[in-house]
């Protein structure tokens, strides 16, 4: 399937304050594209969870965003990437309630439930790349 990129950008996600900036950026793009309020809130919340993971567990990284078009649908796609320790057991990491830190263990699993597409690409020592997509 052909995917057209209509718009794109990138944002550093290094410190805690960047999590707020990432949310605001996601909100801005989503409302520019006319996303419904409930869907927008879900996307922004997912971005918040993943950006926080990037800072806390990945030691900082970047968020690349795109406004994409595929078979007439418009969507928002975000890639969170870091050069951190990576995740050894991805199945465990995607289990509700499991956490390697002090959180509730809802970050990854919760974020996955809030978006239409979720892709986790990681290995120990290889960093983590998480791509999410929400269609409008």
């Amino acid at each position: 399937m052909n995917v057209n990129v209509n718009q794109s950008g990138s944002l550093a996600v290094r410190v805690e304050q960047d999590v707020v900036l990432a949310r605001q950026q996601a909100r801005k793009i989503a409302s520019e594209q006319g996303m419904r309020l409930v869907d927008l809130t879900k996307l922004v919340t997912a971005v918040s969870e993943l950006a926080r993971n990037t800072v806390v567990y990945g030691g900082g990284g970047d968020m690349d965003w795109q406004v994409i078009e595929q078979s007439g649908r418009i969507g928002l796609r975000m890639l969170f990437r870091d050069e951190g320790p990576g995740i050894a057991d991805t199945r465990l990491a995607l289990t509700d309630g499991w956490t390697s830190g002090s959180g509730l263990g809802l970050g990854l699993t919760g974020a996955r439930r809030l978006v239409d597409e979720f892709d986790l690409d990681t290995a120990p020592g290889q960093g983590t790349r998480i791509t999410i997509t929400r269609w409008i």
Partner: peptide, 13 residues
């Protein structure tokens, strides 16, 4: 807000 409540439930919180 409604949208926040719906999202929290979906998040599992």
């Amino acid at each position: 807000q409604p949208a926040v409540a719906i999202t929290l439930v979906e998040l599992g919180l």
